[in-house]
Design a protein around this nucleic acid. Sequence first.
RNA 1: GGUCUGGUAGCUCAGCUGGAUAGAGCAACAGCCUUCUAAGCUGUGGGUCUUGGGUUCGAAUCCCAACCGGAUCACCA
Length: 603
Amino acid sequence: MLGLVMRQLFVDAFKKLYGEEPPAQNVSFQKTRPEFEGDVTIVVFPFVKIAKKAPDVIAKELGEEMVKESEYIAKYNVVKGFLNLLISDKYWIGFMQKTHLNEKFGRKEVAGKPVVVEYSSPNTNKPLHLGHIRNNLLGWSVSEILKANGENVVRVNLVNDRGIHICKSMIAWQKWGNGCTPESTGKKGDHLIGDFYVMFDKHFKEEVKNLLPANYDQLSDDDKEKAKVEAENASPLMQETREMLRKWEAGDKEVRELWEMMNNWVYEGFDVTYKRLGVSFDKIYYESQTYLLGKSTVMDGLKKGVLYQRDDNSVWCDLRDEGLDEKLLLRRDGTSVYMTQDLGTAQLRYDEFHPKKLIYVVGNEQNYHFDVLKRVLVRLGFEWGNDIEHLSYGMVELPSGKMKSREGTVVDADDLMDEMEATAKNVSEELGKAHGLSDEESAKLYHMIGLGALKYFILKVDPKKTMLFDPKESIDFNGNTGSFIQYTHARICSVLRKAAEANVAIGDKVDIDSIQPGEKSLLTNIYTWPSVLEQAAINRSPAMIANYIYDLCKAFNQFYQECSIMKEPDEKRREFRLQLAAMTARLLRNAGELLGMQMPERM
RNA sequence: GGUCUGGUAGCUCAGCUGGAUAGAGCAACAGCCUUCUAAGCUGUGGGUCUUGGGUUCGAAUCCCAACCGGAUCACCA
């Protein structure tokens, strides 16, 4: 809003003074640094050639002209080539009047073709861990951000429910499970299955070790590798597992029943975790229902001559002319690989929604995969392959290094949430903030705080970057944390409660004619929200939202410290400050929602 | 080795399409609760923005190279 008005004003002034339009790309506005007076700064260096005058002279002339022409510019000053403009209080008050009650400030109406966002995409052989948490939070949050920007978002999940890894858990359960169930063990289904997966791996390793040749240690690296592969193939456990997969694919009744039962345990477990994390989906795809679809497309491509077949019958796509490699699409035995399945699911999804964009929230280790996927689709004649966007996020590392399931260093999602909530409880009790709440209320509050801290901690870093998850730091509730955000909200609510108790009415009308410094930095902060939201959507970056609310909260806390609200003697100013506080709280809820964070009224 | 990606304070991170003296939090130290929630506020110290070139009025930001990390290049998913 301000940007456009200012731009026009500047262009007009410039034309009038120098008889020429300034090059549009050089006209940029930025926030004035706090050490100078003003709100908006224009850099005039790029215009010295056109104006043929010294930078400070140009700045002065432009400033003079702009102040004269607009009632919204109160004054200006020039420092070197920087023209600082002070926006009049009248403008800010007008903005405040217009927006302070708007719950949806900055949001746009949803319209247009759908945008499909896939995220989570779990395997059904183990419970969710920290890596999945980043994925889920990102997928959820980016969806919310896009929705807030008017996109018609459809959230989908693709469950990898079939394959050799599932069979491993099944074999282990058959052998050593003694018919146990989540009920009989009191374990969450996904954890129970995960345990059997680990159990399989342990026994399998043991077998392989015993099958290695006696002289294994003396072999060369190449031979070692060979011997290992041989041993793995010879392992009875592995053979049984492969046999089970074959039976599964053949539709063997017994295997399918076992598979269904165990997968359902997992889904029940996942549901609990998803619910607690606060994420959900509009549609869930199962790979077992879609994995065959890719095959026919590949066969079509083969017929059309876009793909080719080798002597061993395997099918490939040659992408070498695009700087990539050859990619296998069907194994020599005719079974499908990951890529084949993804070709199928992409088509299914496209046919169902005809979206303008298909966004996949998947870790950056699969960058190459998606690069290939898009190109193969386009080659097969699906132009919309170009509408696929891989929202590629960085890995989560621990202070000890990478998470490795085999070394037991994975951080389990359920455990982590338990811990966050428990810490929220401890801290609240230590600070003596928990009194007066029922058990149910306090449990809800600890959930809000614990999960809020976790979400903020993860979402505040740029999705593209590898992030370090330090448990000690994640559980700290001071400084740049989710708790700080929530605390600020609770503080505002507390003031508003006090006002209500004192029967101080807060009207709709903003009735004030000047703004004080402490008030202004808060207000100008709020003012930038719509552009932040827009940028966050363009960049698919919840981090931009998180950084924004942090600044907003800092601005509020400074205001709170500097300006007494309820003790303000001037009634109109007191009301204005209450309006400002209420507006901040609204915005915190509005923005917090985009990160999946709830805002407590007291804490 | 090919491709992609990153390197900012002791640690974790901001820094938008180039703009003023590079910012926060944590950690350290020093202040502020008879006053709206101290999970807060204020201040101090801490930097060759990995290095070297280039582009220009101006570079943490753009380009090239080197060094160091990470990912990927499976008839795994």
